[in-house]
Design a binder for these strands. Structure first.
Ligand SMILES: [Mn+2]
Ligand SMILES: [Mn+2]
Ligand SMILES: [Mn+2]
Ligand SMILES: [Mn+2]
Lengths: 217, 217
DNA sequence: TTAAAAATTTAGTCATACCTAAATTTTTTT
DNA sequence: AAAAAAATTTAGGTATGACTAAATTTTTAA
């Protein structure tokens, strides 16, 4: 049985390892967790003792099979709770993260599975991220960044790369959300900004915004 | 902001102080929490430093106003979560305690208040215990033990004194639950057992059982 | 290919929340 | 009113999970 802290580390290692190749570096986890590198080293040793990561001094860590499973169990709970908060408790998608960060540590298989049933087996959370099922399997569809969508081709917004409250509220104001139909009308060479069609309105967004929005063509 | 541990202590102190008069003794909390008396003394000092209890060496503790409020906030969350687990997640009333013991520590006022709204402002939890409202006020009706119900007078089961899984499942088997109409048909002098009418069936229960059932006449 | 910079680990602390064993205080019994 | 028993506190210790400062290793740059 894991502590709250080891669970957060495993999750952080999983996330970092998804978005980069090779072993996960001490500093990257320190940034993610908000702790000093020396504290991360301590934890790497503990996780290694429990066979949840493979750790070589100065070379970073990689999750073992057991480590991946543990991480996915936490992610499953995190995303189910986020879904619940949005669908039944009037939370906006930018408010759920902090609370789900706590709820993901509640230990009760029955609770998790009943919550999943109550929500009718959702496949994606409010941010468009896939929810691992009971067997910890999640289907990911091939999504691309809005910057990579060819001009005039339509795509549906299926996710965001930046989950920060600031970005999510910005999208709210622009009326862009999961499911919004998007189309790049024009790509401005000068500053790489995009004129897009978002639902029924046309608007201009910067490159920085576009590269934080995932679409399915 | 409290830690998980201090919250459990405050709750324990509140519960013990409700069921006995005067200051709360070290040993009683040690039993409730499942820790050694020396650990309890340590915690009493910490709580006293935070002005959540009044503590006099060798004389036990009593909650301050702030301590009572903190305890009631935890109890409010505990009972709301228990209600949710039973009403929406197919938990039986004997299974909820252990999970609510964890959920009660989640920190989010919005979560608590939205959960309360979602459950339609319940006044009592699955065990018949009153749920403090947002202002931490709870209405308690005057209930008596089944042992004190006069023979042939009807009463409704409104609570239990023993919340253990064993007792609750025993009541399930006897088809006694919150809301069940009860009537004492005969009081056996010899062994103090009771013949009772419970809903549509008549059955015999021991004194020990009867003194763990609350009824409203 | 050495020197500088960056990353990482080690050594030594600290706070929380437990514990055991011993000392002290209070309560009960004789 | 002592003596014995029970309750409580103190002293000293452990594990977790964080920290700072210093040492070491790896990477990058001159
Ligand atoms: Mn977390
Ligand atoms: Mn999410
Ligand atoms: Mn608890
Ligand atoms: Mn209850």
């Amino acid at each position: 049985m894991q502590t709250l802290s080891t669970e957060d580390y495993l999750k952080a290692i999983y996330h970092v390892s998804q978005s980069s190749s090779g072993a996960v570096a001490t500093t990257s986890i320190a940034k993610q967790i908000g702790a000093k590198p020396s504290s991360v080293t301590d934890m790497f040793k503990k996780l290694s003792d429990q066979n949840l990561v493979k750790y070589q001094k100065y070379q970073g860590v990689s999750l073992t099979n057991e480590g991946v499973k543990t991480a996915l169990r936490i992610i499953r709970k995190h995303r189910l709770w986020e879904s619940f908060l949005v669908s039944h408790l009037n939370f906006n998608w930018d408010e759920v993260h902090q609370v789900a960060e706590q709820l993901e540590h509640i230990q009760s298989e029955k609770l998790t599975n009943e919550l999943e049933r109550f929500l009718d087996y959702p496949t994606h959370d409010p941010h468009g991220d896939p929810i691992p099922n009971r067997a910890l399997f999640m289907k990911t569809y091939n999504k691309i960044l809005l910057t990579e969508l060819p001009v005039n081709k339509e795509g549906v917004c299926v996710g965001v790369r930046d989950n920060s409250s600031g970005f999510l509220r910005y999208l709210d104001r622009r009326q862009i959300g999961i499911g919004t139909l998007l189309q790049v009308l024009h790509r401005e060479d000068f500053d790489e900004s995009l004129h897009i069609q978002a639902g029924k309105s046309t608007l201009m967004i910067t490159k920085k915004t576009a590269e934080n929005i995932y679409v399915k063509p």
